[in-house]
């Protein structure tokens, strides 16, 4: 999740950092989200090293125990420690979300900008392809892809990337299309900039703010998508800990009173999605040229 494209204008790091501090100070929610994000990163990096128990080791004599001092988040139906599983799952979940979004962002923004800038055939072909994807109810398409290719982590990432692609294309296309005849573009053109240069340095930065909103939403959605797939049995393979599958499994235990199995991974999942979403808003402020001093 790099924000470097936004800083391509000749601004030095110091100024960027001042702006960062300004945004954070003005927007406490973003600050909280940013801290949350750092915390998630810590868990993702050091997760396996800091778990109190082996996240895969079952202990059936100790199954379905409510939270206690020994097991802060309780134990699941096989007696595995829920806390350890929630911590270890962080890495996989972030990996799924970030790689899926990175793929669709990279491909989608480029295709969309090209379509929006050149119009004509480029636009038509790109438009028809995205329409075709859009024409599927997206979750069902993801289900179809995962069902057809098999339920592995990679396929979940690809499926998520594919279903998110059209949004990037559409947003990028719309933004570029609206601006391609704007005064500053015409000026840049007259100054002898090539199309590629124009697109990359003058139009592309402009589509970033709306794209960032999209990225932030999609990071969360990617995790939710994986969770939904788990709920219908197409998620990550057991026994790998993953928040979505833990919530999906735990959800069936709510009525019988074992709320901790769904609640804690659900809370972790919610925090992560929450953090991505809020962070997206923050990022938008951070890179929005209109708010720069």
């Amino acid at each position: 999740m790099s924000v470097t494209p936004a800083t391509t204008r000749e601004s030095d790091a110091g100024e960027w950092f001042r702006h960062f501090r300004y945004v954070m100070a003005e927007n406490p929610v973003t600050l909280i989200a940013f801290c949350l994000f750092l915390m998630l990163l810590v868990f993702a990096v050091f997760g396996p090293a800091i778990t109190p128990y082996d996240p895969l080791a079952s202990e059936t004599g100790n199954a379905l125990q409510p939270p206690s001092w020994a097991h802060w988040f309780g134990t699941d139906n096989l007696g595995r420690d829920v806390l350890s599983r929630v911590i270890v799952a962080t890495r996989l979940d972030l990996l799924i979300a970030v790689s899926a979004v990175a793929i669709s962002f990279a491909i989608g923004s480029v295709l969309g900008s090209l379509a929006g800038y050149y119009g004509g055939w480029t636009d038509r072909v790109v438009g028809r392809c995205t329409d075709t994807i859009m024409a599927f109810p997206l979750f069902v398409l993801a289900m179809g892809i995962v069902a057809a290719l098999g339920n592995t982590v990679e396929n979940i990432v690809y499926a998520t990337a594919i279903i998110n692609l059209p949004f990037y294309v559409r947003v990028a296309r719309a933004e570029v299309n609206v601006r391609r005849h704007a005064g500053f573009v015409a000026a840049a053109k007259l100054a002898g900039n090539s199309d590629a240069r124009l697109l990359m340095f003058h139009l592309y930065p402009n589509i970033l703010p709306p794209m960032m909103v999209q990225v932030s939403l999609n990071l969360g959605w990617a995790i939710l998508n994986a969770a939904g797939l788990s709920f219908i049995g197409l998620g990550v393979r057991p026994p790998t800990p993953e928040w979505g599958i833990m919530v999906a499994e735990g959800a069936t235990y709510i009525v019988s009173g074992e709320w901790w199995m769904a609640l804690f991974p659900g809370a972790a999942l919610m925090l992560a999605v929450f953090c991505f979403n809020l962070l997206g808003d923050g990022l938008r402020d951070l890179i929005d040229p209109q708010r720069r001093t």
């Binding site: 080791a57 139906n77 057991p238 026994p239």
Partner: peptide, 17 residues
């Protein structure tokens, strides 16, 4: 079998272990 996951998933996990 996914359709029989309610008993076979925990059983499979224990067999695996």
């Amino acid at each position: 079998n996914l359709g029989l996951a309610d008993w076979s998933e925990p059983a499979a996990l224990l067999v695996q272990e």
